[in-house]
Computed example of a mutant assay.
Amino acid sequence: MFAVCCAAEEGGNQITTGGLPLASVAKLPDATPVSAEPEAEPGAEEGAAPPAVADSFTVVFDCSGEGMQLGLLLDTVDGKSCIIQEITEGLVQNHNMKSSLDQVIKLHDNICSVNGSGSDKAELLKALEAVKRGAALTMCFERPKEQTVLINKPGQIGIELCYQQTSYGLTIKNIQSGLLDDWNRANPSTPIRTGARIVAMNGVTSGPMGLLKSMKESDILLLTVMNYQ
């Protein structure tokens, strides 16, 4: 079965199950949702967004090699997704070197199933641990779609966020009454849903804390959002 490394933000201990170092998978810990809202009066919203539907593709790995690692650092901050934050030496890297462009596994892709299992991150990690050397390993990956949303304040944005200092952007945990909900109502064909990640603000990509600061202080918010199913 797989050896799974669960790393906390400041480092962690490797947990090996069954003594088989076939796949090293590190993950960020789950986060406690927080609300980030400016104190302001209701305002207007506007913006435009292209259709944003995530693509998925399937990869079958050869697990017969000695000492092979899967080689992934996973961001599981929302408690559901397993988003690839880093690719290191291992099965995924080897696959990418010889695969076609549409089958290359990229940063920020989400693992959506492992050998047919995968309702949430706990089930995905459990399925990885259950894989034995030489057995089939079929993984389905989801590639997010980028979308932009322009919001004008003042007003309550109306979102609940979760993040860690090293996580990939700000995960939208919940959408409440506010400017983003108003935007969704005005753009029913391309709404921003829970689970999406805000990864840039006004064209600037920074860590979660920088994004949160900009969201609170800026009057015009051009949000770059990565959409997952």
Rank of each mutant, 00 (worst) to 15 (best):
Q164A: 09
G18P: 09
N202P: 01
H108Y: 12
P144K: 02
C63R: 06
F2V: 07
A48R: 15
Q176I: 10
V34S: 11
K145L: 10
I15R: 15
V225M: 04
C82N: 03
Q69N: 14
S113W: 04
Q69T: 14
A127V: 00
N184V: 07
T171H: 08
L137V: 02
A52D: 01
R193V: 15
L161S: 01
A122T: 14
A200M: 09
K153D: 00
P38K: 10
I192V: 14
G134A: 02
V60F: 13
T171I: 05
K27S: 07
V4A: 12
L73V: 12
V92N: 03
K216Y: 12
A36N: 12
G169W: 00
T17Q: 13
Y163S: 10
S100Q: 15
I111R: 02
T166I: 11
S56T: 07
S218H: 13
E45K: 06
E89R: 15
S99T: 06
P42H: 06
Q165T: 15
A136K: 14
I15E: 14
L101G: 11
L73H: 05
Y228S: 03
N110C: 12
I175T: 06
L124W: 00
L70K: 05
K216D: 12
A136I: 11
I175M: 04
L70Y: 03
M226K: 04
E37S: 10
V60G: 12
G210A: 02
N115M: 05
A130F: 01
